[in-house]
């Protein structure tokens, strides 16, 4: 239909001229430019990101106890371990039944080994383990029976990994910044 316009100047409009490719490419670019802000708006907003780090005062934890704080919507255990608990953890550093081998010193900060900071979410399917229960004196997850030791390492049960140690730093001797 387009070919029989009978005009010698007329070309087949479907010819792949450069200008059509350029216009088409610009249209694709415009589409991407329009779509990106819509997609990016679903990324965490500024107020969510602002709560991505929190500070915690360690004087609130008693020796042998733990405090649970909320960070990024998840529970974090801050546990003040007794010397006996630290020793028990270190004794098992090279135990052969460790599913996820890790030594205790790598899971705490140098000079502050009495404080263990872990995310309180079982690495199996996310339940919150209970403090002090289980066969290894650490934590016990009631959902499917995972046992963690006093370093938060998985010792028995279906969980594949040790309790995750989040990024944290000591801003002073008594204050940690998590995240």
């Amino acid at each position: 239909m387009a070919a029989d316009q009978g005009d010698p100047n007329h070309q087949d409009p479907n010819r792949r001229d450069f200008i059509h490719i350029a216009a088409g490419a610009a249209a694709v670019g415009a589409g991407a430019m329009a779509a990106w802000p819509l997609v990016n708006s679903m990324n965490p907003a500024a107020d969510t990101l602002a709560l991505s780090t929190i500070e915690f005062d360690l004087t609130k934890v008693q020796e042998g106890q733990q405090v649970v704080i909320k960070w990024q919507g998840k529970p974090v255990f801050v546990r003040y371990r007794t010397p006996a608990e630290v020793q028990r953890a270190r004794a098992d550093d090279h135990a052969r039944d460790l599913k996820d081998p890790e030594i205790d010193a790598d899971r705490v900060k140098a000079g502050h080994q009495q404080f263990l900071v872990v995310i309180g979410s079982c690495t199996h399917l996310g339940c919150v383990p209970t403090f002090g229960a289980g066969d290894y004196g650490g934590w016990f997850c009631p959902c499917h029976g995972s046992h963690y030791d006093t370093s938060g390492r998985i010792r028995k049960g279906p969980a594949p990994k040790n309790l995750v140690v989040p990024t944290y730093d000591y801003v002073s001797d008594t204050r940690v910044k998590i995240g």
Binding site: P37, S41, N43, A45, A46
Partner: peptide
Amino acid sequence: HYVPNTEMAFASVERIMRDVNGGDII
């Protein structure tokens, strides 16, 4: 991002303007 509640509607729109990525343009 919008919250259809009289207590929060106005503030949720301003949150879109300020905190949501690209929210002001959207």
